[in-house]
Design a binder for these strands. Structure first.
Lengths: 273, 273
DNA sequence: TTGCTCCTCACGTCACGTGAGGTGGC
DNA sequence: TTGCTCCTCACGTCACGTGAGGTGGC
């Protein structure tokens, strides 16, 4: 039976840590003095402490370790936990590698000195959106505003009639690359707060969760090209690929003050192989 | 100017997070109502928020991000921070891969059903130890106790004479593989609490920090072979190699009760290439 | 009046590290 | 008496999430 300081020196574990393990019941001293509160350990407790350290080293939390120290555990159960942990670590490594790729892409951009370009690109996960939408085919580029306005008007009236309410900014989904300017298919979508019936013309459904890369464009719609170019470059440089219709989210859109408009352009993405 | 809830919906960032960013001064609303305390944001603040999210995504802490949002920062400075971060992430990935290797080794052991064997192996970093030591060459295996005891006696008397005190368990360093049993060179070392002069026979120096793989052996010295075998197997299976003299740390060693002796066997290791 | 949004505390997270203030054995 | 070791609080860490309890505008 030795005192906590000696046990700490033997095990190269701090006194504070040993007290912590006592407190949470992971490793209780063989004896505690009623009067002084001194903790006394036995050298034979070292294997248990070592097991704790070894499991911690494999990435388990103290809470997970506690049951693993019980004698009742079978090798098979231990194997399961290890397999789960392995998957977790693998996923983590994949994430960190993606992070590394993003950092590297950013550094390359700085070297090319056009770093300003992608300074505002964000990768994020958009939650599922319950929406009502109407799809139109727009003959030429010049007719986009008219067609979209008409489509949104139709969706809004449908939504109001069924007693639902807007639940965020409206958006358009474009089902072909941004370079296409003839016979474009656009889906005018309004986020709503409750499910309502749809019709032939107005679909009601939930847009699934998606990982998107986005950029916020300030000002009139005229110069979206730069934004698209930047996003597509980012997607390429970071090892992703476009995975679906891109979206325009009309965050601020007052027709009388287009200079102050704010539009978010979102490209759904997936890891390229 | 919009309310916090709208800004949260636009940015897909939680209201709580926005309040947090306000509190730490990362992103303050354009206006706050004196009476109600309501926070009002402008859509033009989205780019700043996006920059925050993008940098957070690269692994920076909020504290690190704050100065990076200042206009005064040059691309070169940003590049430096990114390079540092890249190194950090790379190091992290290396660590996680090592962890993965350890998990995999453990799983292989379970499959082979001799998992009990390495259950107590620990990888840890031993701090530098100030020690006094005497090296002896031991002709045959049978003479180990006698030679070691003599060596320790000599070191202890030297240490006492110079007024230093023991500062942890004594240990032996073995300068050749454990399989060698003739003319073994062993260094009997005693940890001391202050520097003292050495002699021809008793060296005083600091053992450097070392990463070691260790196991605690309970009971008499006779069956160290199993422990050595287990450690060497672990080292091999986890992609390490032996990097120096192995150590025996005599944690509990009462000659009259050898059955209760506890000895830690430590192998210094380095990553194998 | 009823929802809805917003507010400010206060506490919890994970595995400890770092004092503050005080006690027992040589 | 002086060090040394040990003790028990209490607070901090990082980036928020989760109530509790209360207020303002439709």
């Amino acid at each position: 039976v030795i005192k906590i300081g000696d046990f700490a020196r033997l095990s190269h574990v701090s006194v504070v840590t040993l007290r912590h393990y006592d407190e949470i019941g992971l490793l209780t001293p063989v004896a505690v003095d009623d009067v002084t509160g001194y903790r006394y350990y036995a050298v034979t407790q070292l294997p248990r402490l070592n097991r704790i350290l070894a499991l911690k080293d494999l990435g388990f939390s103290l809470e997970q370790i506690a049951p693993m120290l019980h004698d009742g555990i079978t090798p098979a159960q231990l194997g399961e936990m290890l397999t789960l942990k392995r998957k977790e670590v693998e996923r983590h490594i994949t994430e960190e590698r993606a992070r590394l790729a993003r950092i590297a892409a950013r550094l390359r951009n700085i070297e090319k000195e056009d770093h300003m370009a992608d300074y505002d690109v964000v990768l994020k996960t958009v939650p599922p959106l319950l929406s009502a939408s109407h799809t139109v085919t727009i003959p030429t580029n010049g007719e986009v505003p008219a067609y979209l306005n008409a489509a949104f008007a139709e969706v809004y009236s449908h939504v109001k009639q069924r007693g639902a309410k807007e639940n965020g900014p409206c958006l358009a989904l474009w089902h072909q690359p941004a370079a296409v300017h003839v016979n474009e298919e656009a889906e005018a979508a309004v986020q709503i707060d409750r499910p309502i019936p749809g019709t032939d013309r107005v679909m009601v459904y939930t847009l699934p969760v998606t990982e998107v890369v986005s950029i916020v464009h300030q000002g009139a719609f005229s110069d979206f090209r730069q934004a698209h170019a930047t996003l597509l470059e980012w997607i390429d440089a970071n090892g992703y690929r476009v995975a679906g219709a891109y979206r325009e989210v009309y965050m601020q859109h007052d027709p009388s003050a287009m200079a102050e408009a704010a539009t978010e352009i979102q490209y759904p993405v997936a890891q390229a192989v």
